[in-house]
């Protein structure tokens, strides 16, 4: 056995030992990457803020158009005159997952509600009073804007939307 053969043998022995370690390292790293991706993409993504803003967008388009209140749909005498289905918005079979409240205030008296209409799952409103983030609870978004009626009376319109959909958005 020559000097070169001895060197080869020694390298092979070392190589075998190293290959086990290498295999372990690659397995850990590979498994880790798969695990990271599975955990990250396996969890749902909370899009309720976007959904709530879209709903507010649509409701606001319905109650006010071109800077004026849509008095064809809204009569301040009776809140029963208005229904969200008139705005071509319906919650299909998910009425339990949504809540909306539209409130009109006159600019001269912001304490008094002139007109109010709410719908959907009324139990969700109570969650909107708690402003802290408590985790898996319905999400509330509230927006205000300014509008006028035909007689140029000024109003502040407040739209509150709450979306439950916890199973789909929060784990």
């Amino acid at each position: 056995m020559g000097i070169i053969d001895m060197k080869k043998n020694s390298l092979n022995k070392k190589g075998k030992l190293l290959s086990i370690w290498w295999f372990m390292i690659w397995a850990i790293v590979g498994g880790g990457i798969v695990g990271l991706a599975a955990i990250f993409y396996g969890n749902p993504c909370d899009i309720r803020a976007v959904e709530a803003n879209l709903l507010i967008d649509k409701i606001s388009d319905c109650v006010s158009y071109g800077g004026r209140i849509n008095e064809n749909l809204i009569s301040f005498e009776s809140s029963n005159s208005f229904d969200l289905s008139n705005c071509y918005i319906n919650f299909l079979n998910e009425e339990e997952e949504f809540f909306y409240k539209i409130s009109f205030y006159k600019l001269d008296n912001l304490e008094q509600v002139v007109f109010q209409k709410s719908g959907g799952n009324l139990n969700l409103e109570s969650f909107c009073e708690v402003r802290e983030n408590l985790g898996a609870v319905p999400l509330c978004v509230e927006k205000k804007f300014y509008s006028l009626d035909k007689k140029n009376n000024q109003y502040i319109i407040k739209i509150l939307v709450s979306i439950k959909k916890i199973e789909q958005n929060v784990k």
Binding site: A49, V50, E51, A52, N53, L54, I56, D57, S60, D61, S64, G66, G67, R68, V141, K143, K144, F145, Y146, S147, L148, N152, Q154
Partner: peptide, 19 residues
């Protein structure tokens, strides 16, 4: 998209213009 504030800002602007 989905940012209600931009739509509402336009509505405010239109009402400001009328008055």
């Amino acid at each position: 998209i989905g940012d209600g504030s931009s739509t509402l800002e336009v509505k405010n602007f239109l009402s400001y213009t009328i008055t």
